[in-house]
């Protein structure tokens, strides 16, 4: 049905493995994004490509109760990314991924803190997986 393994001998995505230098993070959300991408695609000693990203996260009040208590928050994240060729500096592929995660605030204050922190971690992981999927999809057109 036309599907072929992305990695392996005839795989097109092998060029990504251990070949991408992801820009250094500045915030915790950035760092979690970088960690997940590096975990899945390996770290680059001699980078063939460089991945730049701009991660933005906003919070949205949800489920306001009758007594005006906000019982849920949505974390809405979006990343604009660009893969560059380290030799020529050309942008090879670029795009925007976005998604959201939620956390409840009906527990104690420390439960809300932990839930919020976990929601940030999950959001960065989801966005990283979306970027990796797009890089795999674009790998056939990337120069060796």
């Amino acid at each position: 049905c036309g599907f072929a393994p992305a990695y392996g001998p005839s795989g097109q995505a092998d060029k990504l493995l251990g070949a991408i230098l992801v820009d250094a993070p500045e915030t915790r959300d950035d760092q979690l994004l970088v960690r997940q991408i590096e975990t899945r695609l390996g770290r680059a000693d001699l980078p063939r490509y460089a991945l730049g990203y701009d991660l933005k996260v906003v919070e949205e009040r949800m489920a306001v109760s009758a007594t005006n208590i906000t019982t849920r928050f949505n974390l809405v994240g979006s990343v604009r990314y660009a893969l560059r060729d380290t030799d020529t500096g050309d942008i090879l592929t670029t795009g925007t991924v976005s998604h959201f995660t939620g956390y409840s605030t009906t527990g104690t204050t420390v439960a809300t803190l932990a839930a919020e922190r976990d929601a940030h971690e999950r959001l960065s992981s989801i966005l990283a997986d979306q970027i990796v999927a797009r890089l795999i999809a674009a790998s056939p057109d990337l120069p060796e």
């Binding site: 995660t101 956390y103 009906t106 420390v110 439960a111 809300t112 932990a114 839930a115 992981s125 997986d129």
Partner: peptide, 22 residues
């Protein structure tokens, strides 16, 4: 248990070993 009382399950922790937030 004061902290891990609100657990979420989504694509972000589908493959995690422990999904408790703390």
């Amino acid at each position: 248990n004061d902290e891990s009382t609100r657990v979420e399950f989504d694509e972000g922790n589908l493959l995690s070993l422990s999904r408790f937030p703390s």
